[in-house]
Design a protein around this nucleic acid. Structure first.
Ligand SMILES: [Mn+2]
Ligand SMILES: [Mn+2]
Ligand SMILES: [Zn+2]
Ligand SMILES: [Zn+2]
Lengths: 147, 147
DNA sequence: TAGATAAAAGCAACACGGTTGCAAAATAAA
DNA sequence: TTTATTTTGCAACCGTGTTGCTTTTATCTA
């Protein structure tokens, strides 16, 4: 990575934090940067591993929660009981998520992807049930692993 | 509950266990009975609470795992990181689950229901992705809470 | 029906993911 | 630069689930 590219990402990250009225700290910068560099989702554990500098576990948890609250990232439900996080699209904001895409978990590389272009389907519920939110998680083999 | 009804359920439970080549024990009978008496899903904690007699936590966990292995119950993914279980339909068997229905989590009573008649929809994935399994969880207000 | 054998239950100890309260450090505002 | 406000790190804790091992229970067979 070139020096200028690095400066750019750094500036981009600071900008994004300020836009969300968050003070710019080392851990927030680093964690946000990890999300920007990555096309898949990240779990708490992944972040601890990839953040070169060591942040306290608690700091990572709180940072993730803050990002969720601000509409910067969203959580992804998985069958294996671990919470994963991925960047939101621009339409999300504090207290108001608008993520209507489905998620894909690869059984080979174990990565989780937001399929932003695949909208959650309409579900025809039995009489009496009222839907407020639909989560779709598809499991299988991802693009990268299939080629 | 009448005495004869109680005897019937007890017999039914023993029958079901034998059919799955499981030895008939107090904890298995009691836990299976809880599932039969209940139209929603149960989490480990619910079972510990509702089983009048006290079984060791480990026994409950192992019993649930055994039932899953035998195709008697299936797990339901939830956003809140806790595993819930519900009875399978008859088509499921040891090592071979066939649960293609969607699940509904009520935001009011917090119960989880198998909507056995609502089949998981076909999802149109981008080129390169191959689906092996689709999980749909709908969140909202359930039939009971809506009336 | 009693004894042998196999299976399950109970117990203790642990691993892991996540949370809470509080003091120290860092950030933002003045 | 000083002050007020946030955020961090630490320690301690909780809930959920697991593993190894011993005792108890269920099943099979004589
Ligand atoms: Mn997503
Ligand atoms: Mn179900
Ligand atoms: Zn893959
Ligand atoms: Zn309800």
């Amino acid at each position: 990575m070139s020096k200028t590219a690095h400066i750019n990402i750094d500036a981009q990250v600071g900008e994004l934090l300020k836009r969300n009225s968050l003070s710019v700290t080392d851990s927030r910068k680093k964690i946000l940067q990890l999300f920007l560099e990555q096309q898949g989702a990240l779990a708490h554990g992944d972040i601890e591993k990839r953040a070169g500098e060591k942040f306290d576990r608690v700091t990572v948890y709180r940072t993730l929660q803050t990002f969720v609250d601000k509409g910067i990232i969203h959580t992804i439900p998985t069958a294996d009981n671990s919470i994963r996080y991925a960047l939101c699209k621009d339409e999300c904001s504090a207290g108001h998520h608008h993520d209507h895409h489905i998620h894909f978990v690869c059984n080979n590389c174990n990565n989780t992807f937001c399929l932003d272009d695949v909208v959650t389907p309409e579900i025809n519920l039995p009489k009496g049930y009222a839907a407020e939110h639909v989560e779709v998680v598809v499991e299988g083999i991802c693009k990268n692993c299939n080629s």
